[in-house]
Design a binder for these strands. Structure first.
Lengths: 265, 265
DNA sequence: CGTGCAATTGAGTTGAGTCAAGGCTAGTGG
DNA sequence: CCACTAGCCTTGACTCAACTCAATTGCACG
């Protein structure tokens, strides 16, 4: 949970040993919970705090006047968002939970004090933004140049990789509590067509995506179909395969199916 | 030229009066020129310096194994790029000039010294990245949810607005030295289909796009078709309609057509 | 034990792509 | 000064990937 964030700070070289303690304390005080499928922010909102997801998944989306929805990105445990709080900029899109969500709030005014002078949280924030930018541009490529199956394959590779990077994948499986409608809104296809592609991929034995579990049986093939090259994700993240504790959680929720969201972290 | 940058720094509250002088001096030493249609950076390159475009236009693009090209963004005068230099991250896409290009190089090691302690270039960089992110997400929406004509209308609105913001539009016209092929690679359509849409828009009297000049005759209509809402661009930029001198340049090059690129700023 | 949303499947439609052939313009070299 | 060449632009005829419409099934929850 909090450790995801601490780890990020270390990577940015932002964290002094002395600062770490005070950081941990102050973080624990500011945990917030949200239910599934809630809008956390709407266009125009000015966030007060930078946020860190500690459990659950969320998405950014935009609406057209016609009512069409485009998901422009997913947020997974360990991801920072509302970075614009540090710039006093308003949101220009929606940010919504998909599962139940647990997150930390990092007060803008406190941010600088957690950092050693010189290097700082600034670099952590910029690194997070650079990663989001890389992902966003990858999506532009995905929507612009790939056909239906390739898009879905690429999206699944991205999400699997990112979950893996924070220790939330086991072997070839991960919890991915999206509906086919969510996938459709992310890759800009109709749910009907997404379903056809998924059926086809399943029949081919490449992967299954059922009951919130994504299982990739033939990663080489799926990555090839989606022309997926993970290097754009590595820029800011380090793998670090995570604890047995998490695996236990995963298995449990994988069986029971209930409340998958919050057991996520 | 340099002023674009100085202005940006002021906006970020980063510039002390004292610092400004030394900044101006050091900037003037580091001007670089490129020809049209050159790759400035390729995937894997690690830029040494953050760059600022002072004249001409450029684009980011990615290639698929199949050879398909997707332009993921355009860079206009006043835009910063290669921000990853400040993070020591490699490029994951191509960055290429479209016209001749004049740019400033801002050395990474020098960046901090130009700033008042506390506030700083960090905020300027983050603001620039936030803008690029907003634009990139807008492109995801554009490619995902809009049809051919809507996409083109939206792209033209974006570029017109951005050029206007740095004083490079006159009334309803701006220099936009893109081929229809460039437009096609940006909006993910075939050049053939882009041409059909442009013909149709021209016949409808909405706009013309010929000989590197975009002229929007019915901005209300075009913005409506592209469901264009400029608010996402305003976050980091301030208009400030620019000099008569630029207008003169524009008219001249608008007539002669030659070397449009570099006369740009 | 409905009720409602998600998933699935079939049949017919269409917006954008493909293929192909000219026309226009600018720059090149004789 | 004028052919020649190479891109870019333009247009027409045909194709197809993805969409729409519609109906059915399968769950999960109250």
């Amino acid at each position: 949970m909090v450790d995801h964030f601490i780890r990020k700070l270390r990577q940015g070289g932002a964290l002094g040993a002395a600062a770490e303690l005070s950081l941990r304390k102050s973080l624990d005080r500011r945990v917030r919970l949200f239910g599934a499928r809630e809008d956390l922010f709407r266009p125009g909102d000015r966030p007060e705090t930078v946020c860190l997801i500690t459990a659950g998944i969320a998405c950014r989306y935009r609406l057209l006047p016609s009512g069409q929805r485009q998901i422009t990105g997913f947020l997974l445990p360990g991801d920072l968002f509302a970075l614009r709080a540090s710039l006093d900029m308003p949101f220009d899109h929606y940010l919504a939970s998909i599962t139940m969500l647990e997150m930390l709030q990092l007060d803008r005014s406190q941010l600088p004090s957690f950092c050693e002078p010189g290097s700082g949280i600034g670099e952590v924030l910029r690194r997070a933004m650079a990663l989001q930018l890389a992902i966003s541009r990858e999506w532009v490529l995905n929507l612009g140049q790939r056909n239906a199956m390739e898009r879905i394959a690429h999206l699944f590779c991205e999400l699997f990789r990112r979950l893996q990077a924070v220790g939330l994948a086991i072997e070839n499986r991960c919890l991915l509590p999206l509906t086919q409608i969510d996938v459709a809104d992310a890759v800009a296809l109709t749910p009907v067509h997404v379903n056809r592609m998924l059926m086809s991929m399943t029949r081919s034995g490449w992967l299954t995506f059922q009951r919130s579990v994504l299982e990739i049986h033939d990663m080489r093939r799926v990555a090839e179909v989606g022309s997926f090259d993970a290097s754009y994700l590595d820029a800011a993240t380090t793998p670090e395969p995570d604890t047995a504790q998490l695996k236990a959680l995963f298995y449990r929720s994988g069986e029971t199916e209930a409340d998958l969201g919050i057991q996520y972290s």
